[in-house]
Design a protein around this nucleic acid. Structure first.
Lengths: 122, 122
DNA sequence: TGAACTGTACTATTTGTGTTAGTACAGTTA
DNA sequence: TAACTGTACTAACACAAATAGTACAGTTCA
């Protein structure tokens, strides 16, 4: 069970599937050219519909996480820039929060206190 | 025009209204006991429906941002703890992003580089 | 008192998204 | 050929967001 659906999660199923595979691919659990479960197979496994899985896979391909070979299956792409794009996206998210903090008169330093590292300084 | 609706924004209208007033209240633009636009008045102003505004106001009251007096209107509450709750919520959001970074093997320090303050250190 | 405001509470309808279901077609593998 | 793979449709259902309309209750003020 590589992927697990959480029905408490507000996100739609197809989005949980894409997010799940994105994490598995970016963290290296799934290696380049490794095959993903088939659309129909994963649908059975997750007790969901092939169309829902298909929608998730289409998004993964659109964003460069996987490539598709018709008749063979879906495979992890060896796209190295993905991790950098994710890093940039995370910085954007944090920057948006800090911008809101600015507008509310909350000090950035105070907000980030103790979030820096794990046992180094701070 | 205190509030502006962005139809590019994926968030529903009622949520944009609550978010807008929350920011105005937390930043002090709207002061305690100051009156908000009437449900019907704001609906006309935003070219939306009174029910939609009502839904937004109900949420604001539920979360302690405003109080309602039937027949008179809605007013900003003088709840001082709201800003601290917001601060806590922001830290949670950032912490969630950093936790994901950990799982992807991205260094927290590197991610937070240069986001600290405005012209002090970092 | 009565008119004109305020909020509140419904019901009905429309629209869009997510999901399910079913069918059909095309390419690959053994 | 049989059994896999992905892809492309259409139809139907559920749900949330939003709109529309009506009705009722409390406040303000002339």
């Amino acid at each position: 069970m590589l992927i697990r659906i959480d029905y408490q999660d507000a996100r739609p199923i197809y989005e949980q599937i894409t997010a799940g595979f994105e994490k598995l691919i970016l963290s290296g659990v799934l290696e380049p050219d490794e095959q993903l479960p088939s659309v129909r197979g994963l649908a059975v496994e997750l007790s969901t519909n092939p169309n829902t899985v298909q929608k998730a896979y289409a998004a993964l391909e659109r964003n460069g996480f996987i490539y598709t070979v018709k008749g063979r299956g879906n495979f992890v792409s060896g796209n190295v820039s993905l991790i950098n794009e994710r890093k940039r996206s995370m910085r954007e998210q944090i920057e948006a929060i800090l911008k809101e903090a600015d507008e509310l008169g909350i000090d950035r330093k105070e907000l980030l206190e103790g979030l820096g590292g794990k046992g180094k300084n701070d």
